[in-house]
Write a protein that binds this DNA or RNA. Structure first.
Lengths: 366, 366
DNA sequence: CTGAAAGCGCTAACAT
DNA sequence: ATGTTAGCGCTTTCAG
């Protein structure tokens, strides 16, 4: 009569070996190197394993021994549930997931809400059993980034920050892309332009909520390289066109909510009612701004030109003028860089192409 | 002069202990139980750690010892990149991620593409260092599910399959929800109804591609409980209304692509041109079907009633008549069930509420 | 093809 | 408050 399939003490490789009166090596080989033992013996091992309810070598113990976790960690600074509402971020995750799947690796989403205390020794970033990290769009001074770096694991950065020694980076040329878009907008004749951007720093100025015009000082402390570059791109275009710097009204959104774009648009328009174009550093911002404008009876592009950035499906569907960037491919590349590091061992910077999409939300000023 | 921050051999807890001439326990305590040693000593430990580039206790070794991985695995049968294109699945993941974040746990996306060989000992499911699994909508006979169960870890099932011994389950009453929707459609006067459904089995009938009418035999072998129940719900309504069983044309879509709904609609309409309503077991199917219909000049709801299932944002925005289910909440509950198992230790079944959404895509037959 | 020995890096009891 | 002891479960040389 067969023994109970669930012995009190969970079966281990050792107990299986004892049961079969063979060495642990043999059991290990049965799982990891089938060619190292007779098919017959292997068969017996597997059968006994099933009988004893042995699930195969413990992944954690194996990881300890082999120094391979079989997974990569994805560090996102935003709360996870926000990231899941930004289609661009999502596409990125999908691309990364795809490359992990190909490589037979797991993808560990690391909980790095801004709320969590870094000092906490149990921080998930520290606890993650992974072979490397992908850092998605972190601020220059993200404390978690420091923690990740400390672990001495391979790191691939996506978008930002720029300067992580030893880390490869996948990005686009944000400045050039935004400049091209701004040149197009300026070329249409716009002279009073609003620029709605995401958070410029991890902090927010004391007492501020929602969105506010970013004063020059705020623009000097940009902890997010990407936003900085995109703003610079617009300034480049404006300057090149001989316009005054103050034809540009920059509004920073502190929150990343579905309605943030509308709120920022409102702030921009009350700061400068003569705006004829709203450029946004993300499609989600632009789409929300459009919803807001429609609610106010301001027609796009008749009364107001609106542009975005990212080229997410919904934006393209709605004809938004924007810069399309290959978010999915970013994810794939980031994964690949981790799974198959460059032969040289030196970090690489992978700059992907973007494309200006002239949609139906831009036109000459009224 | 301080030593090089990167010694050839990576610093370990033991080497730190040696350096400081204290026991390993003390170092361990410095990280895990700050209250167990003098603040002073702890300070010294941390300083030396920094000097030696010691990143803190190795997560894998700690996991082995404590038997906690600090992460839960999410097993999705579909390829990951598909899942990232279904908003309902995505919402679910977002909810799960949220609850993991709350619990300070990581979320490991396990690569379980249909392509991977289960026999492969390196299957990611086996290799995942996790404390439990969430199984999202797997077929009754999913081979990976068997593998997961073998690991003797806590398992929470979402939607399906029904019968996983020992596993809690989060679900909705698919049959009742679909029946209510079908009653509404029948109540509008429809007598020839098409039902477009996702895959009914892991396999597909030999030689089939795209979509095909599901014959009675195929309807007998439903490896997906959810689809089965939803179909049953429609049949319930039809039967209750005194209609013949053959007023219903069931079409099964074998692929899960953005255009699958349209393809299935085409199949349904050529199988029975007199259809006046297309009910779909997923919003993504319905939305695609609507696109198809529009392309053919078939107006909704004038010429054709279309209904969906899930209540994803885009569907609600487009006014689809559908059943809204709380996908995000499903994810949260699943996570919670894993992180805070019921006191009793007994598996629970958590049936969430759904809501019939009477949109603008349903009306009386032409 | 199989086995014996030696840890991987850590923490949990249990002293002291 | 700190140290000692004893593994967690596995893989990997290296010999037979």
């Amino acid at each position: 009569m067969p023994r109970s399939p669930t012995p009190r003490r969970r079966a281990t490789l050792a107990s299986l070996a004892a049961e079969l009166k063979v060495s642990r090596t043999t059991i290990s080989n049965a799982y990891n190197r089938p060619d190292q033992l007779s098919a017959d013996l292997r068969e017996r091992v597997l059968a006994t394993a099933k009988r004893l309810g042995y699930p195969g070598p413990d992944p954690v113990a194996r990881s300890l021994r082999t120094r391979k976790a079989g997974a990569v960690g994805l560090m996102i600074t935003e709360p996870l549930n926000y990231s899941f509402s930004d289609p661009a971020a999502l596409d990125f995750v999908a691309g990364l997931a795809e490359s992990c799947e190909e490589a037979g690796q797991g993808l560990l989403l690391v909980a790095v809400g801004p709320s969590r205390d870094v000092g906490d020794g149990t921080a998930a970033v520290l606890a993650a059993g992974v072979d490397g990290f992908v850092v998605y769009s972190a601020s220059d001074d993200d404390p978690y980034l420091a923690v990740v770096r400390q672990r001495h694991l391979p790191v691939v950065v996506v978008d930002q920050p720029m300067d992580v020694p030893g880390a490869s980076r996948v990005c686009i040329d944000d400045r050039a892309a935004m400049r091209e878009l701004a040149e197009y907008v300026v070329g249409l004749g716009h002279r009073e332009i609003g620029l709605l951007t995401m958070r410029l720093g991890r902090d927010r100025p004391a007492g501020e909520v929602g969105a506010a015009v970013a004063d020059p000082q705020r623009l000097q402390t940009p902890h997010f390289h990407v936003q900085r570059e995109r703003i610079a791109g617009v300034v480049d275009a404006i300057t090149a066109a001989g316009l005054a710097r103050d034809s540009l009204t920059v509004v920073e959104s502190y929150e990343h909510l579905p309605t943030s774009g509308g709120a920022a648009a409102e702030v921009a328009l009350s700061a400068n009612p003569r705006l004829t174009a709203l450029m946004c550093t993300a499609d989600v911002l632009a789409l929300s701004a459009m919803d807001y404008l429609r609610g106010r009876g301001i027609y796009v592009p008749g009364h107001m030109t609106v542009t975005g950035f990212d080229g997410v499906p919904e934006a393209l569907r709605r004809g938004l003028t924007t810069v399309a960037q290959p978010s999915v491919e970013k994810g794939r590349r980031a994964g690949r860089l981790l799974h198959q590091p460059p032969r040289s061992g030196l970090p690489v910077v992978d700059v992907l192409d973007t494309e200006l999409v002239r949609g139906r939300t831009s036109g000459p000023p009224a």
